[in-house]
Structure formats: structure tokens, C-alpha cells
Design a protein around this nucleic acid. Structure first.
Length: 495
RNA sequence: GGCCCGUUGGUCAAGCGGUUAAGACAUCGCCCUUUCACGGCGAAGACAGGAGUUCGAUUCUCCUACGGGUCACCA
């Protein structure tokens, strides 16, 4: 067979199938990202499907959270509840009529059965039985008459999958390789619940098949139930999709141990991270690298487009990764530093506006001193706290060995600096530098010996973004001289 | 506990039988400098342990230990 004769490869189709629980966990977002990348890196299609078969966990407005998050992350879907598509509807509760017939087919063909066990009976099982996996298969061999009678009495029922009792089931995963499980470990899991809704365990294989999903991408917590799904595909005679199980994201606990990332590890919802000041691009970039690494490439900063180019399934690792806020912080800083000055101002505007006496003419200066120094925009307020309020700082701040500054030297140079600044006709960076270094030259000391006490006097902070010159510029001549005078009075009172 | 999976520096990780075992974050030091950052240079720090296979194992196999996942009318 020649190359051109070979069957055309089916277009890759992946789906993101979140439950509308009102919260987009970063683990879910990473799954969505990888599903998107698996599809897009091979020219495929990315589908959004809402898994709302658990009526008890529905939260109002959560579908909007999903839309909003995907949009913010740049993961646009080709088919879904909002954009439609040839395999709709894309909300499972709207597909209800589809599922029961498939389950009934399985019952007819001997792959499933009706179960009338009460909730109470099931609960008692958990305490007594340790050997059998979950359900004790009590109703597995009810006679046809018993079933018919129960059904005609409207007895509540569920439909369970009939697992083979012997042998083993094997499946291949593109990340984890070949996995084999003894069939006796598989529970006769519920396919249709008493409320008539299908379980995830059933509905996902039906919809994945109907929607022609080629690659099932999901967290590795599904690894142990995958054999059950394969048995279902086989029972229906359907083609089994490729599996791509993703390593778990863990969080570090107080005691140093790790476990599946959850709320107690800090902000783990996409919205929470954004609220804390992380940029969507930075979050996406960071989580892309949690469990995946590009081949022969040392880059770490990737746009979504670059991720699509670089992505390949064999770069996904098997071992779980621990979410590291420090690294996320670094990514955020990188993204901030790469912004244009205009973009920076847009993001920082509300923080800038909270600074008293700072007009837009000073925004370029603020941008210049802040952009390389913050990793989140919310840090601006704290870093420039001195602008709104000068605290009664401890005069020991005037002591700085490297600058050859002491309270004594501050006393003398603050006086000369004030004088030089007072005489300035123009309040610009150049004129201020000239004035201050003029003082330093005159007394043959290093610039820092003059700059240090001035900066301390007007900011009251040991560490500030920018130096004395920038602080003076931001405060303006009046406020600056006022603060220097105040400082001089305070240290002269000392003796 | 049964089953499944995993294990390279504190963290993310490259490596896919022969390497001085990459790189990034964090840490520390130096330089730059008007404090702090940014940037530059540098340091410290890892193949969980034990058997095999092999001329040779971080890499392949098995065992042990540890970690995680899963055993729902949740997904």
C-alpha cells in the first residue's frame, strides 16, 4: 500500500466536560488546556460539553463561569452549548432521552441489570463487607419474573453494569502505557440512577461515542475506572478512543505532605487567582508546564499559540506535580515586565488613582519604577504607601553603612539638600540630581550619603521603588520640602 | 485494606544503556547601583533502597520503602 492510499487520519476531537458546580478549579482548567492543546496541535477540534447529570450539585450561573473562564484563558471551543455544532445538544440534561435506551439495550444483551436495593441496604454493606468491590451484586441474578414484578409495582430501581467475574481487562494509555486490571476488582457500577439520570460513568462513554471524541483527556484519578468504560465500549461494539490521562496536581499541606490540590492549599480557583492579581496568560503558561515539558526547548514563556506549536502528548509526564505559588509569581512578573508602558498603565490605573496628589503626568515615571519591581498589581499600594501617608519612622533608618549615612550626617546633609532643593526653579529629574550631587561634590562625599537621608526623610521607608530623585518627583516640591523639614526637626530634637 | 499509578536537588523538570546528570523557580554570594528591584555572573543542591540483566545502568526487570489515586445513586 502506498502512502497516499492509506486511510485519511480522522480529525482529532477532544472535549472538556466540566460539571457546573460554580467553581473552576485550576486542575480543571489545566485539563481543559491540555484537551485544547491535544486537539489544536494536530489541527483538531475542541468541544465543550456540560455534564449536569448530578442534579443535586447544580449551581446557578456556573455555566457562565465556565464560558467566562475559557474565554479569559483563550481556550475557544469549536462546538458547545453556546456556539452549537453538528453533535448537539451539548448539555447532557438536554440529551436525557438518549441514555435510557442504551442502558436497556445493555440489559437485554446481558451486560447490565436492574437493581432494587435500598439505600439502607447499600449503606450496611460498606461496614460489613471488605472483600467484594463495592456492591455485593445482590440483584445481579434476579429472575425475569422478579424483575418484571418489581417494575410493575413501580419499585425504584437503578441499572447496574454486569462486570465479568474472572479474567482481566487491559487498556492502553498514551501517557501511562499499558494497564491491566483483574476483572474481579471491578464493581457493578450504576449506569442509570434512581432519578432516571445516567451517571458520569455511563454518560461519558455514550456522549464521547456519539460526539466522535477521538482522544479522551482527563485527570489520572480516572485511571482506575477506565477498564469499566472499555467493557462498556466493547459491549456496544464501539471503537475505543485513545486515552490521555494527566498527572495530578497536588498542593502542599501545612505539615509538608502533599495531596490533590484543593481549597485548603490557598487560591485554587481560576477566579481566586485572578482576584489575587495573577494574569490569565501567566496562569495558563504556568499550568501548561505543570505536567508537560517541551522537547529540546528551554523556553518557559509561551503564548497560547506557541504552546500549540510546541505541544506533543509524549511530553506529558506521569508523576504528579506540586502547585508552586512562587513560580506562578515569577511568571506573573515576567508577563508584567513584558507589557508595553501603555498596557501597564491600563492595568495599574486604579492603583495609580488611589495615590494622592499624583497626576497622569507622573504615570510614565510610576510605570518606569514599578514595572520591573512588582509581580502583581496589588503590590503598588503597599510599595508606594509613603505617598499617601508618611509614618513616624524610626530615625535609625538614617543609618546606612554602604551609603556612609548616619543620623549625624543626615542632620547636616538634610539641611544642605533642603537648601539646594528650595532654590530649584524647575522640579525635574535633571535639576534634582544636579542639586543633590552638587551638595555631595561640594562636601566631597559620595552621592548616596546625600541621597539616602533625603529618600528616608521623604518616604520613611527603608525600601522604596526608585530612589530619592523619583520620590521627590512623585511628591512634588512642596510636600518634599515639608517632609524634609519635619525630619530635620525630629532628629534635632534628639539632642 | 484491595487494586492501579508514581519516585531525578525544597519545587517544576530534561534525560529515553555510555552525559562533567540540562534548564527554570526558590536560596546564597558577587557585579551593576541612589535603597530595593530588574539585569549580568557565580555557588550550593538530585537519580529512594536492594537485587538482577548487561562490558556498562538515572535509563530495562523484580522486590522493598515511601508518596499519590481509587474503591458513591460525585464527576
Amino acid at each position: 500500500m502506498t502512502f497516499s492510499d492509506s486511510a485519511p487520519k480522522r480529525v482529532v476531537r477532544t472535549r472538556f466536560a466540566p460539571s457546573p458546580t460554580g467553581f473552576m478549579h485550576v486542575g480543571n482548567l489545566r485539563t481543559a488546556l491540555y484537551e485544547f492543546l491535544v486537539a489544536k496541535s494536530s489541527g483538531g477540534r475542541f468541544i465543550l460539553r456540560i455534564e449536569d447529570t448530578d442534579r443535586g450539585r447544580l449551581v446557578d450561573g456556573s455555566v457562565d463561569v465556565i464560558f467566562r473562564t475559557l474565554r479569559a484563558a483563550g481556550l475557544s471551543h469549536d462546538e458547545g452549548p453556546d456556539v452549537g455544532g453538528p453533535f448537539g445538544p451539548y448539555v447532557q440534561s438536554e440529551r436525557m432521552s438518549l441514555y435510557l435506551p442504551f442502558a436497556e439495550q445493555l440489559v437485554r444483551e446481558g451486560h447490565a441489570y436492574y437493581c432494587f436495593c435500598s439505600k439502607e441496604r447499600l449503606d450496611s454493606l460498606h461496614i460489613e463487607d471488605e472483600s467484594a468491590a463495592g456492591y455485593d451484586r445482590h440483584c445481579r441474578d434476579l429472575s425475569a419474573e422478579e424483575v418484571r414484578e418489581n417494575l410493575s409495582n413501580n419499585a425504584p430501581y437503578v441499572i447496574r453494569q454486569k462486570m465479568p467475574l474472572t479474567g482481566e481487562t487491559t487498556f492502553d494509555d498514551l501517557v501511562f502505557g499499558r494497564i491491566t486490571v483483574p476483572n474481579k476488582e471491578l464493581e457493578d457500577q450504576i449506569l442509570i440512577k434512581a432519578d432516571g439520570y445516567p451517571t458520569y460513568n455511563f454518560v461519558n462513554i455514550i456522549d464521547d461515542h456519539l460526539m466522535e471524541i477521538t482522544h479522551v483527556v482527563r485527570g489520572s484519578e480516572y485511571l482506575s475506572s477506565t477498564p469499566k468504560y472499555n467493557l462498556l465500549y466493547e459491549a456496544f461494539g464501539w471503537e475505543i478512543p485513545s486515552y490521555v490521562h494527566l498527572p495530578l496536581i497536588q498542593g502542599r499541606n501545612e505539615d509538608g505532605t502533599v495531596s490533590k490540590l484543593s481549597k485548603r492549599h490557598g487560591a485554587t480557583g481560576f477566579d481566586d487567582l485572578i482576584a489575587e492579581g495573577f494574569l490569565p496568560e501567566a496562569v495558563v503558561n504556568y499550568i501548561a508546564l505543570l505536567g508537560w515539558c517541551p522537547k529540546e526547548d528551554l523556553r518557559e514563556i509561551f503564548t497560547l499559540e506557541e504552546l500549540i506549536q510546541a505541544f506533543s502528548i509524549d511530553g506529558i509526564s506521569k508523576s504528579p506535580a506540586t502547585f508552586d505559588y512562587d513560580k506562578l509569581e515569577w511568571f506573573n512578573g515576567e508577563y508584567i515586565r513584558r507589557m508595553s508602558p501603555d498596557e501597564f498603565v491600563v492595568m495599574a490605573r486604579s492603583n495609580f488613582q488611589a495615590l494622592s496628589g499624583i497626576g497622569t503626568d507622573l504615570y510614565p515615571l510610576l510605570t518606569e519604577i514599578l514595572q520591573p519591581r512588582i509581580t502583581r498589581f496589588s503590590q503598588i499600594t503597599e510599595k508606594l504607601a509613603y505617598i499617601n501617608e508618611l509614618v513616624d519612622f524610626d530615625p535609625v533608618l538614617f543609618e546606612h553603612k554602604k551609603s556612609k549615612s548616619s543620623i549625624d550626617s543626615a542632620r547636616t546633609f538634610l539641611g544642605h539638600a533642603a537648601e539646594a532643593l528650595e532654590n530649584l526653579a524647575e522640579w525635574t529629574g535633571e535639576s534634582i540630581i544636579a542639586a543633590l550631587s552638587g551638595v555631595a561634590d561640594r562636601f566631597e562625599v559620595k552621592n548616596a550619603t546625600v541621597m539616602w537621608p533625603v529618600r528616608i526623610a521623604v518616604t520613611g521607608m527603608a525600601v522604596t521603588p526608585g530612589g530619592a530623585v523619583e520620590a521627590l518627583l512623585l511628591l512634588g516640591k512642596g510636600r518634599s520640602l515639608e517632609r524634609i523639614t519635619r525630619a530635620r526637626q525630629r532628629i534635632s530634637e534628639k539632642d
